[in-house]
């Protein structure tokens, strides 16, 4: 397992949201705007990196039978830390997404990575894996937030001041004059359908990649045949 492979796995070929379909609940619920998506995504990356690290550190001391409760307690501990930190430093954002910050505990990605990767690999790889899986999740979350905010509110980057303080107040880009958009996109049905379309898009891209890889193989075989 090389670092390049870990990065590729987390970001695309084994992406937690698009391929493993884990953690869909927060993904659909929080992606109303770019700001909330970024907030939850960053929190997930932090918890996933930290929990993977700690699980890898203690992996040789853990008993087979008690490992799952132990892992979930580690995750719950880190989530509590992030939850309290967010309450302290960005209270308004926390007000909006506090439920889903707490629900990071039951995001299957975290327990899944702890069990299938961090409990078998050294600390440095586990950290990288956690960060990359988290980033893969964050990217899908951002893409959803981007589309839903653009379609639903007709704006982008509104309320970024919740995350970055007062300097971000004028980052908002307004596309429609009346501030109205296609309302369905911000409502729950829009989230379900958009996610369905994202999965379809992933299928299309994968198929293209497969076709071009095959074409390259054929090319290589031809060249091999020509040069005896």
């Amino acid at each position: 397992m090389t670092s390049k492979q870990i990065i590729q796995d987390g970001l695309w070929s084994n992406n937690p949201a698009l391929v493993q379909l884990l953690g869909l609940c927060p993904l659909l619920a929080v992606s109303n705007t770019v700001a909330t998506s970024l907030g939850l995504g960053l929190a997930t990356v932090m918890v996933l990196g930290a929990s993977n690290c700690l699980v890898a550190l203690i992996r040789n001391q853990v008993d087979e039978a008690t490992r799952l409760p132990l892992f979930i307690l580690i995750i719950a501990g880190f989530v509590t830390c992030v939850d309290l930190a967010m309450q302290a430093w960005s209270f308004e954002l926390h007000q909006r997404i506090s439920l889903f910050i707490a629900l990071i505990v039951t995001n299957c990605t975290l327990l899944g990575r702890a069990e299938s990767f961090a409990s078998k690999n050294p600390v440095i790889y586990s950290l990288l894996d956690g960060l990359m899986m988290g980033t893969g999740f964050l990217l899908v979350l951002l893409a959803m937030g981007f589309c839903r905010e653009l379609l639903g509110h007709g704006t982008l980057f509104s309320q970024m001041d919740l995350l970055f303080g007062d300097t971000a107040k004028n980052w908002t880009i307004q596309f429609t004059t009346d501030g109205q958009g296609f309302l369905l996109a911000v409502l729950p049905p829009g989230a379900f359908m958009l996610m369905g379309l994202f999965l379809a898009l992933k299928n299309i891209v994968d198929e293209r990649l497969l076709v071009s890889a095959r074409a390259r193989d054929i090319q290589r075989v031809r060249i091999d045949l020509r040069t005896p």
Binding site: P188, F192, M193, G196, L197, A200, N203, I204
Partner: peptide
Amino acid sequence: ALIQGTAMNLIIAGILSMAFM
């Protein structure tokens, strides 16, 4: 073929959710 499986299920769920609204 491209939206078979989970993509289709999500879209169905979206329609259900719309009905529940």
